[in-house]
């Protein structure tokens, strides 16, 4: 039967069978490796989490039951004392409120602006890819550079923002944006939105690109105008992705320390004193590590609460 060469070539593999059997011994060790590879590969990360997250978290909770400061570095057990102090302290409730406003305002504006920009960048026009690239700049720009340039822009004496507003007659004289309680909060919010809205743009744009085109064509045939198409097709299609983005961004903005701290340090008059800054103030400003830890623990439980909403949402999605 083997008249052609390929046939012969395929057939010479009799010795292959022998090699297979020799392989069986070799694989005993590597079979074990194969069987437990999942655990083995997860081990380094588990170790990382254990040492750098779980232990510190437990230690943080532990510390929150102590009064611990420079004069008493070993700490004195105070039980729930720090929490009692916390929940009876108006500064804590004030910061909780500020944090909530800060997260709500920045996320709300990021979502609205991000979605609008994504819709714009989904249209086709000359130079679109350039604009798409540039829009990402605020997101990739180092936080400290962002802070510094906005400090310059907001500057009361020679800041460009004041110059333009005075020239156009919108305000009569320069405003010290970051050092007045009423303007400081919104000035900081503005930077938070500027820095992070590109994230929403990228996610929403990616989602827009996979909405089937024939949905729009069908709606058009059914007589829907551009506004009806937005509300009846685009928005429902974006709903889930917007919910997820809003939830996750809320967590990050709630926990964000750098933007506010570096622009205002929590001031003026605690107008921008968010919870992370309060932790910092207690722990490294007045060296009350126990109280700082107690605030951090409360933040942790807020995080757990929001994350369980997220996981519940994911579970509903998967069903």
């Amino acid at each position: 039967m083997a008249s052609d060469t390929p046939q012969g070539a395929v057939r010479t593999f009799e010795d292959g069978a022998v090699r297979e059997r020799a392989g069986a011994a070799r694989t005993l060790a590597s079979t074990l490796l194969d069987r437990h590879l999942g655990i083995i590969l997860l081990l380094p990360s588990a170790l990382t989490f254990l040492v750098l997250l779980v232990f510190p978290l437990a230690y943080g909770i532990y510390t929150s039951f102590f009064e611990r400061h420079v004069l008493d570095p070993e700490g004195t057990w105070v039980g729930l004392g720090n929490y009692v102090w916390l929940f009876t302290n108006p500064n804590f409730w004030h910061s909780l409120l500020i944090s909530t406003f800060w997260a709500g305002a920045t996320v709300g504006l990021q979502i609205v602006l991000g979605t609008a920009v994504a819709l714009l960048l989904h249209q086709s026009f000359q130079g679109r890819s350039l604009v798409r690239g540039l829009v990402l700049f605020p997101y990739m720009m180092p936080v400290v550079s962002v802070i510094l340039v906005w400090m310059l822009l907001y500057n009361a004496l020679y800041g460009v923002i004041n110059y333009v507003l005075v020239q156009t007659g919108i305000v009569s004289r320069p405003i010290a944006w970051l050092s007045q309680p009423d303007s400081a909060f919104w000035s900081v919010v503005f930077v938070g939105v500027w820095k992070y809205f590109p994230f929403v743009v990228v996610i929403v744009l990616a989602r827009l690109q996979v909405i089937p085109q024939d949905l729009y064509e069908a709606a058009r045939i059914d007589g829907a105008g551009p506004i009806a198409r937005f509300f009846d097709i685009t928005l429902p299609q974006l709903r889930d992705v917007l919910l997820v983005v809003a939830l996750l961004r809320t967590i990050f903005m709630f926990n964000n320390f750098e933007i506010v701290f570096l622009l205002t340090g929590g001031g003026p008059l605690r107008a921008t004193m968010t919870l992370p800054i309060l932790v910092y103030e207690q722990a490294f400003g007045v060296y009350e590590l126990g109280r700082g830890s107690a605030i951090a623990v409360v933040m942790f439980f807020i995080l757990i609460a929001v994350m369980s909403v997220y996981f519940a949402f994911l579970r509903k999605e998967n069903d």
């Binding site: 060469t5 390929p6 046939q7 012969g8 070539a9 010479t12």
Partner: peptide, 10 residues
Amino acid sequence: ERKVAAIGAM
């Protein structure tokens, strides 16, 4: 190499 050549031809 021999086997690859043979399969390629086949």
